[in-house]
């Protein structure tokens, strides 16, 4: 984890309530699919945790949904403005565990980390399932297709209905979607969301129950393996 000042090079609306921001760091660094960043916004005490959608050299892509005052404020940040960012945070997906042809399931604002993951394991021919509540909220369908991975779209239904039983599933989305994915999965890894304060494991603000006690979503997660869950 480093504190860095990144420059905003793009911040645009790409679907209903969904924005894509690209930021340039002083230098390139490695990130793992499933990791996130904490963004400091002027006048806001806590940082905003945003999942990493893509990293290309020194340029990071973040796709975020406007859910409150903080993310609304983010939409008004302009090209050229500077952003105080803690990055990268969290554990990320364990790529070695993911077999050929795994199902990558993203729901709504859970789609962006799946892009990072699909890109990282494209040679393993993953099958991507994207779920959106409505046509207006669809984003990144073409971006996935450009990676050359099989991509299925579900609009207004349950994206997990499309996933075959017994699949190895990597998923990110609302908890109800993760539970549905988990019910079908033979094995898998899921990224979780929680209200956080620090984002680096110090405050215990985001501890979640697992089989052997608890995990801090920010530090021990956000990616947690199926076998570790208390579901």
């Amino acid at each position: 984890m480093k504190q860095q000042i990144a420059e905003i090079i793009e911040n645009k609306n790409i679907a209903r309530s969904i924005w894509q921001m690209r930021i340039r760091f002083p230098e390139a660094f490695d990130v793992k699919a499933g990791q996130f960043v904490q963004i400091s916004l002027p006048g806001r005490f806590l940082r905003r945790p945003i999942s990493i959608c893509d990293m290309d050299g020194d340029v990071m892509t973040l796709v975020y949904k406007v859910v409150g005052g903080g993310t609304d404020q983010m939409t008004r940040l302009a090209e050229g403005e500077q952003l105080d960012v803690l990055a990268p945070l969290g554990n990320g997906y364990d790529l070695d565990q993911i077999p050929e042809g795994a199902a990558l399931v993203g729901g709504g604002v859970g789609v962006p980390p799946m892009y990072c993951l699909a890109k990282a394991i494209a040679d393993k021919k993953p099958v991507v399932y994207l779920g959106f509540a409505s046509e207006e909220e669809v984003f990144f369908k073409e971006a996935f297709e450009a990676l050359g991975v099989e991509t299925h779209l579900n609009i207004g239904g349950y994206v997990t209905d499309d996933v075959p039983d017994g699949a190895y599933i990597c998923a990110c989305g609302p908890e109800v979607m993760l539970r549905a994915a988990n019910a079908k999965a033979a094995d898998g890894q899921y990224s979780f969301e929680a209200r956080m304060a620090c984002g680096f494991g110090a405050c215990m603000g985001c501890s979640m129950h697992v089989k052997d006690g608890y995990k801090r979503v920010c530090k021990d997660g956000p990616v947690i393996g199926k076998e570790e869950l208390a579901w």
């Binding site: 005490f45 806590l46 929680a194 209200r195 956080m196």
Partner: peptide, 14 residues
């Protein structure tokens, strides 16, 4: 273990 989640709420300057 402590309290259930969510455990954190943001405020103005705190």
């Amino acid at each position: 273990y402590g309290n259930e989640l969510p455990r954190i709420a943001e405020c103005t300057a705190g």
